[in-house]
Design a protein around this nucleic acid. Structure first.
Lengths: 362, 362
DNA sequence: GCCTAGAATGAGACCGGACTCACACGGGTT
DNA sequence: AACCCGTGTGAGTCCGGTCTCATTCTAGGC
């Protein structure tokens, strides 16, 4: 009794029957391969039309071994960074005739491992992964072993011989920090969601290979060149994981030797930090200067407009997909490591230190 | 010569061979069905372990007829509305053991039709579609005919007997408009990206069934009740398609009888409108009041904070996925039409009309 | 007029699982 | 001793395509 007839799909066999030819001939006419007479072809095509035939991609994938699908594994699709990168990936894949399966990891390693396995089991032709920070790469090795191409996004894993696409960060972070130093900021706070398991930041903590490490390296170089000690006590990791962003911001702007400038590692952090600053009635840039990584449409519309480091996010997606498609196409050359240029956009949220303190508090 | 051995996957047959049992027994042990002795089971499992066996989901899907995958068709994943809804869909699907294939239509009907067909050919177990406005529903009928469930998101199609999840719009739009009228705004501009092929808006233009129609209905009711004529000349459709948003805003705030309040139909439009207003040095709310549909984190951080209509976007995604999963589970009850409550959040961007004109321009 | 290359065609293997069927085996009934 | 049932097992079919292989048909070459 269970259910009413689940309306079976029409198959090549059905088409063949109606067209009065063998299954093989029908398949040939439909697939456009082998030799088929015009007579048969038109009969088969007509039959397919009347029967509304659509090939079962699953069956097709199974014995061609290729699914014309790529998998994308990201940390959080809700994050504008990923959704924009996704758009780049999507547009490029589609232009190449590939569909996209999206998997969201919630920045969790176990989920990421699972995601990669699922994609492999679904026989995607390749995948783009934005690996969770501090993830090991054993699960990605399985992909490499399977012979399917992987491209890493926003992160490279030194141990893994695969292509990667990141935004150049060290140089632009150096520039951004110099900008802050030029304005007199030596107490620069940095807030990142990088998960290091709650360990406190110290100058020689190994954070692995990721954008945050690069940014901190650029920052350090600027401080070193200016001969100013890097304010390690103001560099806070685990934001939004171990620690609330609001608390972190509070801690930075209060205390005996507070930060005079705050750098937000991404737009999600920036939003929460700005909200907290507003709640605490800390004015930007009068009381504290503010800089964020990632350029979003709203950044320039705030009062004051926010100074940002703009990364070519969409282009990263495009580049990653382009490389992946090339690999799927059979390119076996050495892994490529692309670093797309980022740039500092100076707006109004960074001002000389103490610029308005006297006038404003009086 | 083509390529080096594409490292074949291990199959049940391989596992069976190593475990010295028949393929059938191995499959049973692996799949956890039928009767298998403890002896055989452990041998098979051990073999699977050493061979790193992973089942081919394609093959599995093919003869179970179910792929444990749902398809999602959205207009633009880069739009925060969709990425947040996607997150809701994603979380819910995943909890139910389903993977998600994402297809982006770029708000194009042809692409949408294609997308739906692709998903069908990939044999997804069901799909969630946010249909392009003014789309016909013939392509969705094919889905219905196939017996696979579809849930519409953000839109219902009267001709299509399927579930839908939307945000309640008429009532909240009524409230928002009353709020504007209460503040003395009778010249209210409305900017929407709804594509009507460049036709100008008139009060009796049929826009089909979609959120914009609902909003305009709520708006009209408020105007009717206040006995004020609906300013049809200020209602502009096709924003970002036929017309540039900047030009539209310019047109609204200039002219002999300009708008005193502007309503942006979504956050993307709002962002561009705000940028244009800033360029034109039109102050909010002194020169013009502003209201947008969709609540985003930055809205409350602007100066002044933006008054918005908040829709439960994430929850819409969750609800759509929940209904879909229920249908996949075999629920054959009448189509459900869910309208999740939205609410007006009054902030600082709406002020009494003419409130600061004299003081500010003097 | 005969031979052959190549087009046209059908039968059937195959991809990798899920699942049906037939059968062997052992213990409990009567 | 004959019978039954349930567990365990292997052989083999099926899903819906792709593709190989053998066969037939036809046209061109000598």
């Amino acid at each position: 009794m269970e259910s009413s007839s689940a309306s079976r799909y029409t198959t090549v066999a059905d088409v063949a029957r109606l067209a009065q030819v063998s299954k093989a001939q029908a398949a040939r006419a439909l697939g456009g391969y082998g030799a088929v007479s015009d007579e048969v072809r038109s009969r088969v095509l007509a039959a397919a039309e009347t029967l509304q035939y659509h090939p079962n991609e699953l069956a097709r994938s199974m014995n061609t071994g290729r699914s014309k699908t790529i998998g994308v594994v990201v940390g959080d699709i809700e994050n504008p960074y990923f959704s924009l990168a996704m758009r780049g990936i999507y547009d490029t894949s589609k232009a190449g005739g590939f569909d996209v399966i999206l998997i969201n990891t919630g920045e969790d390693l176990a989920t990421e491992i699972d995601a990669v396995n699922v994609l492999l089991d679904k026989r995607v032709d390749g995948m783009i992964v934005a690996p969770v920070t501090r993830s090991s790469s054993t699960h990605l090795n399985r992909v490499v072993d399977s012979g399917r191409p992987v491209v890493l996004l926003d992160r490279k894993l030194p141990s893994l011989p695969v292509d990667s696409v990141v935004a150049e960060m060290r140089q632009v972070s150096y520039e951004a920090t110099r900008h802050l130093l030029d304005e007199g900021h030596t107490r620069v706070g940095y807030i990142s969601s990088l998960d290091v398991g709650g360990v406190e930041f110290t100058v020689d903590l190994d954070l692995g290979t990721n954008p945050v490490t690069e940014r901190l390296a650029g920052m350090r170089r600027a401080f070193d060149e200016a001969d100013v000690p890097l304010p390690a006590d103001l560099i806070r990791l685990g934001a939004g994981k171990q620690y609330s962003i609001g608390d972190l911001v509070q801690a930075l702007v209060t205390g005996p030797d507070p930060a005079t400038a705050i750098v937000a590692s991404d737009s999600v952090i920036a939003l929460e930090a700005l909200a907290e600053l507003q709640r605490a009635e800390v004015r930007i840039p009068d009381d504290v200067s503010f800089l964020m990584f990632d350029e979003l449409p709203w950044a320039g519309l705030m009062t004051p407009p926010i100074t940002v480091v703009a990364q070519p996010v969409y282009d990263q997606g495009v580049a990653a997909a382009a490389i992946l498609l090339r690999r799927i196409g059979g390119d076996r050359s050495e892994p490529e490591h692309l670093a797309l240029p980022s740039r500092l956009i100076r707006r109004g949220s960074v001002a000389p230190v103490g610029s308005a303190v006297v006038g404003a508090s009086a």
